[in-house]
Each structure stands twice: as structure tokens, then as C-alpha cells.
Design a protein around this nucleic acid. Sequence first.
DNA 1: ATGAATATTTAGATTTGGCTAAAAGTTAAT
DNA 2: ATTAACTTTTAGCCAAATCTAAATATTCAT
Lengths: 224, 224
Amino acid sequence: MKYSASKENYLKAIFHLQQEQASVSTNALAQALQTTAASVTDMLKKLKTQKLLHYEKYKGVKLTTEGRKVALLIIRKHRLWEYFLVQKLSFGWEEVHEMAEELEHVTSKKLIDRLEEFLGFPETDPHGDPIPDLLGRMPVSKQVNLANLTINASCTVSNIGDQTAEIMELLNHKNIRIGTKLQVKKKFSFDNSLEIKLSNQTAFTISEHLAKNLFVKYDDPPEK
Amino acid sequence: MKYSASKENYLKAIFHLQQEQASVSTNALAQALQTTAASVTDMLKKLKTQKLLHYEKYKGVKLTTEGRKVALLIIRKHRLWEYFLVQKLSFGWEEVHEMAEELEHVTSKKLIDRLEEFLGFPETDPHGDPIPDLLGRMPVSKQVNLANLTINASCTVSNIGDQTAEIMELLNHKNIRIGTKLQVKKKFSFDNSLEIKLSNQTAFTISEHLAKNLFVKYDDPPEK
DNA sequence: ATGAATATTTAGATTTGGCTAAAAGTTAAT
DNA sequence: ATTAACTTTTAGCCAAATCTAAATATTCAT
């Protein structure tokens, strides 16, 4: 059960795209993987014969149970390495993605399980994404995009969409980071901007563009 | 200046073989890399056009300055990862080689330099091999195989050849490890066994097979 | 419901790294 | 100085992953 780095990347990309849409199109994959539709078609045929996905000509793909498991184990490796790079090697969370893209293809399972232990079994990577366990199970995070949040509900920032230097600059300025608690006070339909309020601060407005890049979890109502 | 894992492996193998012989033969390389002489010839041509080595048909290869530098940077990565696996992830030194073979091809230079810092700038890997610095310079170790050692010279074990569980068992039993000081007292030409003496112990005999797997450095004569 | 626009697949090539079998070069022993 | 034994190279092929260009499906708008 060993797959090439390229195949692993296909499975991972399909997994991520499936979060948005049940069935993934050839073109969407080509774009995600920065390749051509023709190459994607070729690869899908290969992955199909390996029973990693369900694929019928012109009809898009879905991962099989096995394919999903492989994808999750790669995501596990990616996120654990990211955590290592940030926590142990002191990289900034915005610069670790590329390195993790390479490290995730290192095959040894024993290595990644030991790494997880060394890191103290973290639950999420530095971007707030949950880390699948050693069997490839991932806690359902019930993340919600800020733009879709219920007015006035309390929530905690759990994830940032694109981690560019630009977004980081803005978030730093506004004092928003993973773990920040906030409420959406108002939505303006004119430009889809949102008025939000951090605890102990006066409310301010953020653009639709920023809101779409912020993911939150509803704060659990106090237990009992 | 990015080379495929395969090319990196060729350069590394040539570097190691050059420690024994100034010029490396096609066959020796084929054996070291577990491939065929024909494949080696093909690859040598490619590496030559990239000016990583000096090669003339039927005459063997040598690395160029650039080739040697690339090889040393891979060896640097290999040894730092081995150190990490043993010191931080608690693997045994005999089980880390394969994992390091993969990790050494992860490209980021920044990553390996940070890793080195995180590890506290170790000077040798868990097998006692010196770690090249970030410019690809390696301290000349002047290691000598125990079987070739001058009679009665004082030396320190600096390296063990094949790190199998079997050799480890034997070395543990004899109380020999990296750093152990010893002298060769006698060589028996009949079976090439050696009589050696550790400090404060009575001399004992070791087989040719074991001697060939032990490398030492001559102890410097007391300075001045 | 049909034709234009879009999406997808096929066909044929390329690159990288590897293989086998056969040819050619080198070395060593008499 | 030849020839046998060997090493090395050449020639032709294969597989993986990619590409471009052409062909074919699908979808959407009227």
C-alpha cells in the first residue's frame, strides 16, 4: 500500500474539494493541482484501477473508503509536520506549508506516530485544522464560515482560510488570531460587510473578503 | 540547483566510494545503488552535462567541486535527521537509516539549518560520523579501519560499519562503543584476528569480521 | 430542443529513470 | 601478443507522469 507522491497529492486534493462538493470535477482538480485536465483524466483512471476512487467518464470523482483513508493519513502527516515546524523549529505558521508538502510524503508510519508522541499529541495544526489520528479518523470540527454565522452567537476563531502574508498583516492589526472570541453584531447586505465585536472591545467592521477567510466554532453553551 | 532524489543518491554514493578509491567504477556504483551498470552509464552522462562530475568513457568518475558540495549537503541532511530521530524521537541508531534516506531529499535548506540549531549543533551523527556544516564543509576525520591500525598506537573508536542488531550485541558484550579507547597489540596473519586492549582491561581477541567494522581515530599525541 | 460554449477525454509525444541483450573496450594470463 | 574474462557502453524498450492538440460529451441559453 505505497503510493507515489503524485498520487497522494491527487487523493489529498480530492479530499479537500469534496468538503465543498460531493463530486469533484476534472477541471477543479486540474486547477487545484496546477496541471492540465488531460493529465487529471489519465491519473483518475489509474487511481480508479487501484480502487481509491469512484470515477465514471464525464461524471466527476469521489473517494472510496480506502481513498479517503489514504488521504487522511497524508493530511495527518502534513499537519503534524506543520506543528513540528512551528512549535519546535520556530517557523512562522505562514511559511511552513511548502515544507510540509514535502515532508508529508515521507513514508514511515512509525516515524509519524513517534513524532506525534514527541509533540504531545496535538489536536490541531498551527492553522487550527484538526489532526487525524493514527487510524485516519478526524474529529468533525463543525467549523462555520464567519460570513454565515448567526447574529450575536458567541464563537471562537478556529481557522484562517488562505494564509498569506497580507491576511496576516490585517489580522494582526485587528488583533484577531486563532482562539480569539467574537460575536457578529450586524450584517450589511449592501457589500456583505460584517460588524463584529471582540470581548471587551468596541465593535468594528470587516469586509466580506476577510469574513470569508475566517472560520469559527460556536462556543458551547456552558456545560449543564 | 535542485536535483532529483535519484541524482542526489548517485552523488552521495560516489562521494562515499571516493573515500576508498580516487576514481569510482561503473560497476562499483551499480552495486552500491542496487542497479545495473547500464543504468549507471546513462545517469553518469546526465550528471556530467550538469558538471557535477568528471567522467570519461571506460575511465571511471570523480566528483567535481560542485558535485562534492551537493553530496556533502545531502550527507549533512542525512546525519542531522538521524540525530533527530535518535535523540528526539528515541529510535535506536540501527533503525534510523532508512527513514533518513527519505528525509535527506527534503529540499528546504532553511529547514535543515533550523533543525541543526534545534538539535544544538551536534558534531557527529549517532553512528559517530561527522556532520558537514551549512556550507558543506566536513571536518576531516582521518578515520582508520581497525584492521589497518599501527600496532600499539592509541586510538578511539569513532565509527561502526554496519549497524546491525548482531554487531550491537557483540559490541555491548565486549564493552566497546563509540568513544572507547584502545590499542591493537597483535595481528594474527593466520585468520587476521586482532588482539586488542581497552584501557584498564586485559587484552582480548576479536575476529577479522568485527575488526573490519570498527573505525578509529588515532589519538593525537599530547599537544606540544 | 438545438447550437454555442464549456468540460472532458483521447491520441500521440516527451522526460526521467530504469531494464535486458548485445556490442565494444580493457585487462590479465599465458 | 593473443585470447579469455571482465567491464562498460550502446541500442532498444518500458513505465510513470506530464504535456498539447484534436475529438467528443455535456450543459445552458434562447
